[in-house]
Design a binder for these strands. Structure first.
Lengths: 110, 110
DNA sequence: CTCTCATATAGACAGTTGTCAATACATCGT
DNA sequence: ACGATGTATTGACAACTGTCTATATGAGAG
């Protein structure tokens, strides 16, 4: 019998209020997600067939200027949500699932 | 043997990229969380003993002016994350778990 | 080496946001 | 009715953010 041990998904994890530092860090993390272009970038990478996407392909999909896309990709990468890998002239991005999980876990509050 | 049937927590839910409308709505939702004062307010209410908190008590805990706290509570309530209930002169707030779950589910992307 | 092309950076500007003091509103007690 | 008190609104201002154009950087190709 194949039994997977899985943590309950929606158990409250927060038992006491966030202090100032925790709140600042979490807010900074959510701020990264608080932009439609970045969310679309994240979803594009997350649903890419190989799990990765080239920045060169992304610009056309997003419909913003190249510098704007580059800027948003940098923000996502700095936050650790995307992992950047330079291959020759091209930059490839993939999602860091653990980093996304941190934010998801922070919402297990009720 | 006590076997609970639990949905796997971290299965990808996102199968195709977000469109503009979805991204706009999600970004607006995350924007609400992208502020340390609002996160602390949310955590204060979430960890309150009765599951609810009076606005009157909250001002001192947060360390911002009363109008600022009122402003942030309004934003959280408008977003549906907090539910407001007026009782006499006092305003009580509790967390809407379903609303929080919507955001949590949106992060099941990888 | 030089040309080309993918990406990053710089600088500028409009729009948004968080904050506060001042004030208004609303509800209870007297 | 009146005063006290909890909460919301207004208006103002500094700080931040997303966007663009223009330019720089950096790596492969010929």
């Amino acid at each position: 019998m194949d039994v997977r041990v899985i943590e309950p998904c929606c158990e409250p994890v927060l038992v006491e209020p966030l202090d100032h530092t925790e709140a600042d860090e979490l807010a900074a993390a959510f701020k990264v997600l608080a932009d439609p272009v970045r969310l679309r970038l994240l979803s594009l990478v997350a649903t890419a067939s190989d799990g990765e996407l080239c920045a060169c392909d992304v610009v056309d999909m997003i419909g913003r200027s190249q510098p704007t896309v580059s800027h948003h990709l940098a923000i996502l990468a700095d936050a650790g949500l995307l992992v950047r890998e330079q291959r020759g002239r091209w930059a490839y991005f993939r999602v860091d699932p653990d980093r996304v999980a941190v934010l998801r876990d922070a919402l297990m509050i009720a």
